[in-house]
């Protein structure tokens, strides 16, 4: 399953880059994230509860960032599993400075195992896109809130 998309946010590239590696920020913005703890250099352990249709359930997983080219590009490997099955994926996130701020472009490939692999690829893709969209919206929101509080102080 390939996941491709982009989002432009009105923030500087360095801020978006920093946010993507900040456990506190990720905890707040990853949908259903209950725990996110660093487990090594650029690696995290995560516990996530997903409430979307056929992939509903609790998952435990590992996220590893690699090939970092700050503040422009990183690669990410994700592996996880829970009641509804397991998944494994790898992808690239690129940040591009544009007039409106930063354009985040993602391109990843994920494989699913067990029951989630059988829920229907159309559903799975749309659920994954929904979760990604939610994550990016929250990220944008949090960055905005951060900006406001910075201005306020």
């Amino acid at each position: 399953m390939q996941l491709i998309g982009s989002r432009t946010m009105p923030y500087a590239r360095e801020r978006v880059w920093a946010a993507l590696q900040d456990p506190a920020m990720l905890r707040k913005t990853l949908p259903g994230c209950e725990e996110l703890t660093p487990s090594g250099e650029d690696s995290f352990d995560a516990k996530v509860t997903i409430g979307v249709a056929a992939i509903k359930g609790r998952y435990k997983g590992k996220v590893r960032l690699f090939d970092l080219e700050p503040p422009r590009k990183l690669r990410m490997a994700v592996e996880g599993g829970g009641g509804p099955g397991r998944m494994r994926g790898e992808g690239t996130v690129e940040l591009e400075s544009v007039a409106e701020g930063t354009k985040l472009v993602y391109d990843g490939e994920a494989a699913t195992f067990g029951p989630i692999a059988r829920v229907g690829q159309r559903l799975l893709r749309s659920a994954a896109n929904k979760l990604l969209g939610e994550f990016l919206s929250r990220l944008e929101q949090e960055l905005g809130r951060e900006g406001e509080s910075e201005r306020a102080s």
Partner: peptide
């Protein structure tokens, strides 16, 4: 099936 041996047509939807 996909190359990993996962049944893609695994429900009445597919």
């Amino acid at each position: 099936y996909d190359a990993n041996g996962q049944l893609l047509s695994g429900s009445l939807m597919d």
